[in-house]
């Protein structure tokens, strides 16, 4: 894990949010706020959770620091190392794999020159393979930051990456343009 010696502070607007989150839990159960607070801190900190934030939040909740480390290392959703501006999470579980997620990984390797758990030199992209993210109907699926990009092929994924790199606006959802997981042409059942 990355050392970040300075003390973590929540931004002004997040400070109110922190109080609101803590107040959601009944008296004596404030420790439950640990997950939303970690998430908030990660968002504020550019997509990763520094040690200083874990220490700060556990202290706020009256927990031993080690309990915070346990939670942070348990959930793969917390990034304990800095990530690029775009955190690419390719689903590698069976349906996506059968529909070509390995090809998508190759695209990253070829065009971004990064493997899993690596970040591009310009700090734009980080690649990670994740387990099922629950959108198998539109496999293969890639999650980039908060959005899902579905029905990808090598070509559409490459175009997506190029757009992101160029700063062009991109549309989340199916790359084939279908609505949700509706059939592509016409209804196939009643």
């Amino acid at each position: 894990m990355n050392e970040k010696s300075e003390v973590f502070v929540f931004s002004k607007e997040n400070e109110d949010r922190v109080q609101e989150i803590i107040s959601r839990y009944p008296e004596g159960r404030q420790a439950s706020a640990i997950l939303p607070l970690f998430e908030l801190a990660q968002r504020q900190n550019g997509g990763w959770l520094p040690k200083s934030a874990i220490e700060k939040i556990t202290e706020m909740l009256g927990l031993p620091t080690i309990r915070g480390y346990e939670v942070a290392t348990f959930y793969t959703l917390f990034n304990l190392e800095p990530v690029g501006k775009y955190h690419i999470q390719i689903c590698g579980t069976t349906p996506c794999m059968l529909r070509g997620s390995e090809d998508l990984k190759r695209v990253c390797k070829k065009h971004l020159k990064i493997d899993c758990k690596e970040t591009t030199k310009d700090g734009l992209f980080t690649l990670n393979e994740v387990e099922c993210i629950g959108a198998c109907v539109n496999a293969p699926v890639v999650q980039i930051n908060d959005d899902y990009y579905e029905d990808l092929t090598e070509e559409s994924f490459l175009a997506l990456l190029k757009d992101l790199k160029a700063g062009n606006p991109v549309t989340p959802g199916s790359a084939l343009g279908r609505q949700g997981s509706a059939p592509l042409e016409k209804e196939t059942s009643c």
Binding site: P64, T65, I66, R67, T73, F74, T76
Partner: peptide, 18 residues
Amino acid sequence: VTELGAMGRGEDMEISTY
């Protein structure tokens, strides 16, 4: 002394002082 914990999950779980 709350200095020991279980880091990571599943097969990667390790006992550590972090």
